[in-house]
Nucleic acid binder design. Structure first.
Lengths: 137, 137
DNA sequence: AATAAGGCCTATAGTGACTATAGAGTCAAG
DNA sequence: CTTGACTCTATAGTCACTATAGGCCTTATT
């Protein structure tokens, strides 16, 4: 079967070589065979897995979650509800994070509004607002 | 003047003692005096600074940005436009992150929708969707 | 055949912002 | 006097990489 170098994998998956080696080191996917000169030689199976990993990471899953998804996806006959649950939980996290960030953006916008332009630090409204419990005189 | 222990500071600022010591170690704020038994003894100035830091962190500024804000806020007579710029840039980052996460949440919701309940892994739409370029048969 | 460029190898250390752990000294109350 | 809560230092671990150093392999050019 055809085997490719780590550089080819990088081109095909957009995962950097160092990262691929790192994934191998932490046991995220099985290590590939080596050539006579000790170069890694990947199969199309590796490529498939690494694309899967890349996609999961793009979607914000942690490496532990990816590990779990890989494990689950290898058990072809077991129930798929675990996958659904994992995805749903992750979605909840992401939604929480969005709402946190939106609150935060609101506060930052508020800060930005009150200090437009050319005062001096001593009168800076932003800094005053950042110092809690210290009302402006 | 009155000085308080690290425990008091923790209560007053909601920053953990270890974190306060960590901030001290990386030089984020001046180290406090010590008691005879080598305990840290904080002034109200320290308290003010640490509350400031806490607030900045809550707003998502990095420690480097906090460092800069502290530096700026100590120069009472210089211009405040730098503070404004820093805040604005941070806001832009936050807004970018929100939009990234929203796109991501959309994809996750899409995933979640297509796999509700009780199939087996071999047919799992989520896993199929996570494997790019491998269309379902 | 020598050389230079580029790809690949390993191992180690660094990032940010903490968190956890171990082992020891200090203080107040009972 | 002992218990328990608090404090101290130093070190290592977390996550998901990124950077660096130093050396081998391959290919193309001279």
């Amino acid at each position: 079967m055809k085997r490719v170098s780590i550089g080819e994998v990088t081109k095909a998956t957009a995962i950097k070589a160092v990262t691929i080696r790192y994934y191998e080191k932490i046991g995220l996917f099985p290590p590939p065979a080596r050539t006579g000169s000790n170069y890694r030689a990947y199969t199309t199976d590796h490529l498939r897995q690494l694309r899967f990993i890349r996609r999961c990471r793009d979607l914000g899953f942690t490496l532990d979650q990816v590990r779990e998804l890989l494990r689950l996806s290898s058990q072809k006959n077991s129930e798929c509800s675990n996958v659904d649950r994992l995805t749903a939980r992750h979605l909840t996290n992401v939604e929480q994070k969005i709402s946190d960030l939106e609150k935060l953006a609101g506060e930052l916008r508020h800060l930005s509004k009150c200090c437009k332009g050319g005062g001096i630090i001593a009168d800076c409204r932003i800094l005053q607002a950042l110092a809690p419990g210290e009302a402006a005189p």
